[in-house]
């Protein structure tokens, strides 16, 4: 089973100075899975995603992509990043480009796709997230939910094998959360492999195949949504979930 994993973390560690943010993280993401990561603020969820995408350099352990160490000498980082997309809480769309250009530039520069093809592919994914009418808009002219949908299209346009989401709806007004979650739900149903850090418990429960609960830099508990949400074993998990249900 292990060798089939798209992404596998082995004893992953990350320290910022003497602050140990990740301690011995072990996990795997398999093709077609939607894995949700939940946990309190500061538990290291973002750091873990950023390590996977190599926006942070791990302090220890290994990250394997189809069994290949992503930190090995000669590993093609640009290719890897193109195949592992990332969607940020703060969108990070390129401010100097239209929605369409945002979805084209990576294809052209990283994958060497010609303009015409890049445009067609960009249009395909912008249509998919319902943003076709806004292809000529600049990020500053879009609402938060619209920006996030463009950001998802930008990631999809690279045709990645896995998409990482770091709290994609946390910066959004409640009425915009729905439109982004709907897009993610549809992607999950299509079988896209996704690793999602989220505070949206309903999404984690209903959409994911596997849920990971992180606390203090370790995976405190993991399992199917039913296991984790209906009958959590760990005290920490129970506390975290009950606090969420109260809100």
């Amino acid at each position: 089973m292990a060798k089939d994993a798209i992404i596998q973390l082995e004893h992953l560690q990350k320290q910022f100075g003497n602050n140990a943010v990740l301690n011995d993280i072990n996990m795997a993401v398999y093709p077609g899975q939607t894995v949700s990561i939940i946990g309190a603020s500061g538990s290291g969820k973002s750091t873990m995603l950023r390590c996977i995408n190599r926006l942070e350099t791990p302090s220890g352990g290994r990250i394997l992509f189809h069994g290949q160490d992503v930190q090995a000498r000669g590993f093609k980082l640009a290719d890897y990043r193109a195949r592992v997309g990332m969607v940020f809480q703060s969108f990070n769309l390129f401010n100097n480009m239209t929605a369409l250009e945002n979805c084209m530039v990576g294809q052209i520069t990283v994958q060497g796709v010609n303009r015409q093809q890049a445009k067609e592919r960009a249009m395909q994914y912008l249509r998919k997230v319902g943003m076709e009418p806004y292809i000529h808009a600049k990020p500053r002219q879009l609402s938060g939910g619209q920006k996030q949908r463009v950001a998802i299209a930008r990631a999809l346009a690279m045709q990645p094998e896995v998409l990482l989401f770091d709290e994609p709806t946390s910066a959004l007004d409640p009425q915009m959360v729905g439109e982004v979650l709907a897009v993610m739900r549809a992607l999950a149903e299509e079988g896209l492999t996704m690793l999602v850090v989220t505070h949206e418990m309903a999404f984690a429960r209903d959409v994911s195949d596997h849920v990971i609960f992180m606390a203090d830099g370790v995976i405190a508990e993991e399992g199917t949504p039913a296991q984790l949400f209906e009958s959590p074993r760990e005290e920490k998990t129970k506390q975290f979930l009950s606090r969420f249900l109260q809100q």
Binding site: N53, L55, A78, V105, A155
Partner: peptide, 15 residues
């Protein structure tokens, strides 16, 4: 975020 957005899709520093 502008740098990270570009890095996340594989663009090099020069690009």
């Amino acid at each position: 975020g502008q740098f990270e957005g570009a890095m996340s899709i594989g663009m090099s520093h020069t690009q």
